[in-house]
Amino acid sequence: MTEVQQWIATTGRLLGAIFYYEPSTEQVRPIIHFFHQPNWADEWGVDVNSEIQTLLKAEPTEEQFQALFLGPNDLPAPPWSSVYLDPEGVIFGNSLLALREFLSTNQIAALGKQGEPEDHFGLMLMLAAYIAETKPEILNEYLSQHLLPWGSHFLRLFAQNANAPFYQGIALLAQETLAIWQDELGVSVKDVQFYR
């Protein structure tokens, strides 16, 4: 595994967990602790601006996670690709079907819970980590066709509308991190139309 693939595996797993699991879970508590360390930015591998570092000092709450990812009210930026890429703006749309076909073709089992849409942003980051570690030959295809076409759009909306400093900081950090993934691997991203 190259250094870049290792970095994608590490950062994808950490960011993905934060977008997917509630902050009190055993998957996320150590990651929040990591971001509260004074020197975490030195270990991240990219220049992290002071705004992001300040936002990540906040403590995320279960209520914030609920409002951003679960509902019952409308989510400020739903974390599923098909909400943005499908003309109907629905979960379980065409982009999810394309992702499922990609997973099936490459014999990759879904990472989420049974019956859950696999195009959740957190799951897709963790999937990038898994692919970087186990099937790096398809990483560029996955990033260019499935994650990067909508990732920055989602993160921009999420950062603008998340009324929670920690999660705003994570969205900004994820934006910078994905841009470097793209640059380091020379990924050309598929053009898409956004419906939201």
Rank of each mutant, 00 (worst) to 15 (best):
H33C: 00
L173R: 01
A58L: 05
N39D: 04
A58F: 04
P76M: 03
Q6E: 11
D183Q: 01
N39A: 14
L96I: 12
G151M: 00
P87W: 00
L75W: 09
F69D: 15
I108M: 05
A17F: 03
V46H: 15
E88A: 02
A110G: 13
A162F: 03
T134W: 14
L55M: 08
I18H: 02
G112V: 07
P78G: 03
A164L: 09
S50L: 05
N73H: 13
K135H: 10
L70W: 09
T10M: 14
K113S: 12
G71R: 04
N73L: 13
W150Y: 10
A98F: 13
L123R: 05
Y84W: 04
K113Y: 14
V187E: 10
L123A: 04
W181K: 02
Y21S: 07
V46W: 10
V48P: 14
V83Q: 14
V90H: 10
L14S: 13
D42P: 08
L178D: 08
M124D: 10
I138A: 09
E141T: 15
L111N: 11
I52M: 04
A17D: 13
M124I: 00
Y84E: 06
L148H: 15
L143E: 05
L55Y: 07
E118L: 04
L125K: 02
I131D: 14
P79E: 01
T177N: 13
F69I: 02
F65D: 09
P87K: 06
L96S: 06
G122W: 01
Q175R: 05
W80C: 07
A128Q: 08
E43L: 13
Y84Q: 02
T2M: 06
A109G: 09
Q145T: 09
P72G: 08
G169C: 02
L96P: 14
N140T: 15
P23A: 05
S144V: 13
S95D: 14
L147D: 09
L127I: 06
A41C: 05
D86G: 10
W44A: 10
T10H: 12
Q66P: 08
P30S: 00
E63P: 09
A41I: 03
E51Y: 01
P38N: 11
W40N: 07
M126R: 13
Q107I: 12
H153T: 11
Q145Y: 01
R156E: 15
Q6W: 10
L85S: 04
L127K: 05
Q182Y: 06
P165F: 00
A77Y: 12
L125M: 10
L68P: 15
P30T: 00
M1K: 03
A9T: 01
T2E: 07
G115Q: 12
F194N: 11
L155P: 15
A67N: 15
H146L: 00
A109V: 09
R29L: 08
P87G: 10
D119N: 05
R29S: 03
V4S: 13
F92T: 01
R196C: 01
V187Y: 04
P60R: 00
E43A: 12
L148D: 14
A162I: 06
I131L: 12
L139T: 09
F121A: 01
A159P: 15
W150S: 01
V187H: 09
F65A: 13
L127W: 06
